[in-house]
């Protein structure tokens, strides 16, 4: 298929996944921030408004103060901030319009409606600080889009690049969250309300409860979000999914740098999981994220004809 189309699809997936994860993250932090801490518990993880701006990276076109309303505004419906939910959806929709002939009509409609309703002024925050409706909208519409993809799109190279984009972004976002939220104190086994917020932010609360017997403390939560392959939004599951997608798209997978790199990363995650050492989770996250960045570069190099990500 055309390299240009492949890249558009890849970034369509990335932008949509980024919009969804940003929405979930903002909602989680918002909920946690409204309330105090449980009695007698200290916070081993930090999810705050300042840290949110860090999660979304250094690229800011203008300085935003660290207050709640400013951060919420900047990351939710500021169309001029490229990291905002609205901007992500807008880019996804632009990308989708460039590949309308490749994706199904229903997929296009799903994403176009999402964008139009966001821009239609329907989601004016009512109580000045309430953005719940927007986040719910983005969550639901994003689930609809991926559901329609699974249901109506031919499982060819095109869908492989779309999925690879969505999953690599999911992995990257979860790593960003973990790196900012994880405690730098070694004792991450403290009881902790913020780790709960982290789980709720990614929508993994019930999955965690069913999979892990331990209470939602910082360390087991971080391990779950990093290593638990059975949880679809964990970093390990995302790495595997990107790997599987690229394998279906690549004619010579055994000579493909991104696939080789992903396979190595996947095995590495498994080793780290079973090692049970007290290795600093933050170091692990850092290394995994660096590796994912290299994968991203490899993908652009190999499949998109060297068109580097801007």
């Amino acid at each position: 298929m055309l390299a240009r189309i492949a890249q558009e699809l890849f970034w369509l997936g990335r932008n949509l996944a980024r919009a969804e994860h940003t929405a979930r993250l903002l909602e989680g932090v918002f909920q946690a921030d409204l309330q105090g801490r449980p009695e007698g518990q200290i916070s081993a993880t930090t999810l705050s408004w300042e840290s949110l701006m860090h999660i979304m990276g250094g690229r800011r076109d203008r300085e935003v103060s660290d207050g709640r309303d400013a951060v919420l505004d900047a990351l939710t419906h500021d169309p001029d901030n490229p990291a905002s939910v609205v901007a992500c959806v807008m880019r996804a929709r632009e990308g989708a319009s460039a590949v309308r002939d490749v994706i199904s009509a229903e997929m296009w409609e799903a994403i176009n409606t999402t964008h139009l309703r966001l821009r239609g002024g329907e989601f004016v925050p009512r109580d000045k600080t309430g953005h719940y409706d927007i986040y719910q909208h983005v969550r639901e519409r994003s689930a609809l889009f991926w559901g329609l993809t699974a249901r109506t799109m031919l499982r060819d190279e095109a869908s492989a690049f779309l999925l690879a984009g969505g999953r690599i972004e999911a992995g990257d976002m979860v790593l960003r969250m973990l790196r900012v939220a994880l405690p730098d104190v070694p004792d991450g086994n403290q009881a902790d309300g913020q780790a709960l917020a982290l789980l709720q932010a990614v929508g993994g609360f019930q999955a965690y409860r069913r999979a892990v017997p331990a209470p939602a403390h910082a360390k087991p939560v971080a391990r779950f979000l990093l290593f638990e392959r059975n949880y679809p939004d964990s970093v390990a599951a995302s790495v595997d999914a990107v790997n599987a997608s690229l394998r279906t798209a690549d004619s010579r997978p055994r000579a493909s740098e991104p696939i080789l790199r992903l396979s190595r990363l996947s095995a590495d995650l498994e080793f780290r999981r079973s090692a049970e050492t007290d290795a600093d989770m933050r170091v692990t996250c850092h290394e995994v994220q660096r590796e994912l960045g290299l994968v991203d570069g490899d993908i652009a190099q190999r499949y998109f004809g060297g068109a580097r990500a801007a």
Binding site: Q7, G58, R290
Partner: peptide, 20 residues
């Protein structure tokens, strides 16, 4: 309230891809 006074790690910039 009692948050560890350490700066968060410097994360890589978000990537943005655009063909056109």
């Amino acid at each position: 309230p009692a948050r560890p006074e350490s700066l968060p790690p410097a994360l890589p910039d978000l990537r943005y891809g655009a063909w056109t």
